[in-house]
């Protein structure tokens, strides 16, 4: 059943419909979340007043940063084991987008941190450091792929690195967790259900969904481009031979 997704033709058909849907739904969710976040929800003085409204970008960006590295690792694993070309195409598309959302998370975090905690950056804050190293993992992955001289080699080297990175993520996370953190403990997903007031939680979740859809749509567009580029390369090679 899963291997049906590995067929580029089916993927092109599916994504021709799905990508625009993802963009539309994602834009609606993000815009609604921003409207709610910027104008409707009451400001929280404890979280720094109006600046806390950056949460509706910062938190989805953090979710996306983690989710995209997981997706990169899963795609790499699938490619390494089953050699489905589509998995490699997905991994190649995910990396730069994941890096962008990770950088967005760091930037909005710094903007939120300065007025609230009085610092742009705190070296012993566990989550800041984890996200920073996530960014380095993405950049290293992209640099390695870019330096390989063939597509096949780039795919193999990238997959090895993504998997080594993925098994190190828990260790990196644990080691930086030994440092103290300025961040509040988890407040959306906890054993007792969300601790956040619904007036904040709903726009946040919708905004997160919107970022996820936008990310999915962009990945599909990148993948479509890559599939067509490979097809052009193949056709050019055939034309040159014949």
């Amino acid at each position: 059943m899963w291997s049906a997704f590995a067929n580029p033709h089916k993927f092109l058909k599916f994504s021709a419909v799905a990508a625009p849907l993802f963009y539309g739904a994602g834009a609606l969710c993000i815009l609604w979340g921003l409207w709610q976040g910027l104008w409707i929800v009451p400001k929280d003085e404890y979280q720094g007043g109006d600046i806390m409204r950056v949460m509706f970008i910062h938190v989805p960006a953090a979710w996306l940063a983690m989710a995209s590295y997981s997706a990169l690792a899963v795609a790499s694993f699938v490619w390494f084991i089953w050699r489905h070309e589509l998995a490699d195409i997905a991994a190649k598309a995910i990396a730069p987008l994941g890096a962008v959302w990770t950088a967005l998370c760091l930037a909005t975090g710094a903007i939120w941190g300065k007025p609230t905690w009085g610092t742009w950056w705190q070296w012993d804050d566990a989550r800041m450091m984890s996200v920073l190293f996530l960014l380095f993992l993405f950049l290293g992955y992209m640099a390695l792929r870019a330096s390989m001289d063939s597509r096949q080699k780039a795919a193999r080297a990238g997959a090895i690195l993504a998997m080594v990175g993925a098994i190190n993520v828990p260790l990196i996370k644990f080691s930086v967790d030994l440092f103290t953190s300025l961040h509040q403990p988890a407040s959306v997903i906890t054993a007792d259900g969300p601790k956040m007031a619904a007036v904040y939680l709903t726009p946040l979740l919708i905004s997160g969904l919107g970022h996820g859809l936008l990310f999915g749509g962009l990945v599909m567009t990148h993948m479509r481009t890559e599939i067509r580029q490979r097809r052009i390369a193949r056709l050019t090679a055939q034309a040159l031979e014949g």
């Binding site: 450091m129 190293f133 380095f136 993992l137 950049l139 290293g140 640099a143 390695l144 330096s147 390989m148 001289d149 080699k153 080297a157 090895i160 690195l161 080594v164 990175g165 190190n168 260790l171 990196i172 644990f174 080691s175 930086v176 030994l178 440092f179």
Partner: peptide
Amino acid sequence: ALSATVRRGGLLISIIALPLYVPTAIF
């Protein structure tokens, strides 16, 4: 090993290995 066939691989090694050095440096 990953950059064995890459020219100027030394620069690549550092960006690949840096995040992996983190736990050791912190502990």
